Measured scan of single mutants.
Amino acid sequence: KKYKVVEVKENKDGTVELVVENENGEKKKITLSKEELDKLKAGDTVELK
């Protein structure tokens, strides 16, 4: 499934919390490390299994 990044929030521990949404409007929260996030920004599309 493809999800669009709608919100990006940095946590104090250096991880980043993303809120992503698919075309049905379903939202998910995922947490990434700073390194994983470096290639993402709001409006990008991510694929989740």
Rank of each mutant, 00 (worst) to 15 (best):
N24K: 11
K28Y: 14
G43T: 02
G14W: 01
S33R: 14
G25A: 05
L48W: 05
L32Q: 02
Y3K: 00
N24A: 14
K28V: 12
K12M: 10
K2D: 03
E7W: 06
K1G: 10
K34F: 13
Y3H: 02
V20E: 00
T15S: 07
L40G: 01
Y3D: 01
N24E: 14
T45Q: 06
L32P: 01
E21T: 05
S33W: 14
Y3A: 01
V19D: 03
E35N: 13
E47I: 14
K41Y: 05
V16D: 00
L18C: 04
K39F: 12
N22Q: 03
Y3Q: 01
S33C: 15
V46A: 04
Y3L: 05
N24L: 12
L37P: 05
V6D: 01
V19S: 09
K12S: 11
L32H: 01
L37Y: 10
E26W: 05
N11P: 03
K49I: 15
T31M: 10
T45W: 15
I30C: 06
K27P: 06
K29Q: 11
G43K: 01
E21H: 04
E21V: 13
L37V: 13
G43Q: 04
K41I: 07
K12I: 11
S33V: 12
T15V: 04
K27A: 07
K34H: 14
K49S: 15
T31W: 11
V6Y: 04
K39Y: 12
T31D: 02
L37K: 15
G43C: 10
D13W: 06
K29E: 06
K2N: 06
E7R: 06
I30A: 03
D13L: 02
E36Q: 11
L40T: 10
N24I: 10
V46S: 09
D44H: 03
G14V: 00
N11W: 07
K1Q: 13
T15C: 07
E23M: 06
V46D: 14
V46K: 01
E10Y: 09
E47A: 05
K9A: 08
K9V: 10
N24Y: 11
V8S: 05
K34I: 12
L37N: 14
I30H: 03
I30M: 05
D38Y: 06
K41P: 03
V6I: 12
E17L: 09
T15Q: 05
K29V: 09
D38W: 03
V20A: 05
S33I: 09
K49A: 15
D13M: 02
E10I: 05
K27D: 01
S33M: 15
D13S: 02
K39Q: 12
D13N: 12
V20T: 01
K34L: 10
A42T: 09
G14Y: 02
K27F: 08
K12V: 09
L48I: 13
D38I: 06
K1A: 07
V5D: 00
K41V: 11
K27C: 07
K28F: 15
K27T: 07
K49V: 15
K12Y: 08
D38M: 07
K27N: 06
T45V: 12
L18D: 00
K9F: 12
L37A: 15
E7M: 11
E17Q: 09
E7V: 11
K28H: 14
K34M: 12
K9D: 03
K4W: 09
V6T: 08
K12D: 11
T15K: 05
V8M: 08
K29D: 03
E17R: 05
L32R: 06
V16T: 08
I30T: 01
K39M: 07
K27W: 10
K2Q: 09
V16A: 11
N22R: 07
K41A: 06
V8A: 06
L48S: 01
A42R: 06
K29T: 14
K9I: 12
V8Y: 06
V5E: 00
V6W: 07
K41E: 09
V5F: 02
E35F: 14
T45Y: 15
K34D: 05
V20S: 00
S33G: 13
E36R: 11
L32T: 10
G14P: 00
K27H: 12
K39H: 14
G14I: 00
E10L: 08
K27L: 13
D44V: 02
N22D: 13
V6Q: 02
T31Y: 12
L32N: 01
E10T: 06
N11F: 09
E17P: 00
D44T: 02
S33L: 14
E47V: 11
K29L: 10
D38G: 15
L18Y: 03
E7F: 08
D38R: 08
E23Q: 09
E35T: 12
E7A: 10
I30W: 08
D13P: 01
E47N: 02
E21R: 05
D38E: 09
K2F: 06
K34C: 12
L32E: 00
E35D: 11
L40D: 01
Y3M: 04
V16E: 00
D13Q: 02
A42E: 14
E35Q: 10
E7P: 00
K41W: 06
E36A: 13
T45H: 12
E17F: 11
E10D: 13
V46E: 13
V19C: 13
K1T: 10
D44E: 10
K4F: 11
L37F: 10
V8L: 08
E7G: 10
K49D: 15
V20Y: 14
S33K: 13
G43A: 02
V6E: 01
T45S: 11
E47W: 08
K29C: 14
K9W: 07
V6G: 01
K41T: 04
G43N: 04
V46I: 14
K28Q: 08
K9R: 13
L40W: 11
E21S: 06
E17K: 03
N22L: 06
E21F: 04
E17V: 12
V5Y: 02
E7T: 12
L32V: 09
K9L: 07
N11V: 07
L37Q: 09
E26T: 05
K27Y: 11
V46H: 03
K34W: 13
K4E: 02
K4N: 03
K29P: 03
L32M: 10
K41N: 07
N24Q: 12
K9G: 07
K39E: 13
G43F: 02
D38H: 12
K29N: 08
I30E: 00
N22S: 12
K28N: 08
E21A: 09
N24D: 09
K34P: 08
T45E: 14
K29H: 13
S33E: 13
V6S: 02
L48C: 15
E21Y: 05
D38K: 09
V6H: 04
N22M: 05
V20F: 04
V5P: 00
E36I: 12
E26V: 09
L40Y: 15
N22V: 05
K34G: 14
E26N: 04
V19F: 09
T45F: 14
Y3V: 03
G25Y: 03
V19G: 01
Y3T: 01
E10F: 08
E36V: 11
K29A: 11
E36S: 14
E47Y: 13
L40S: 05
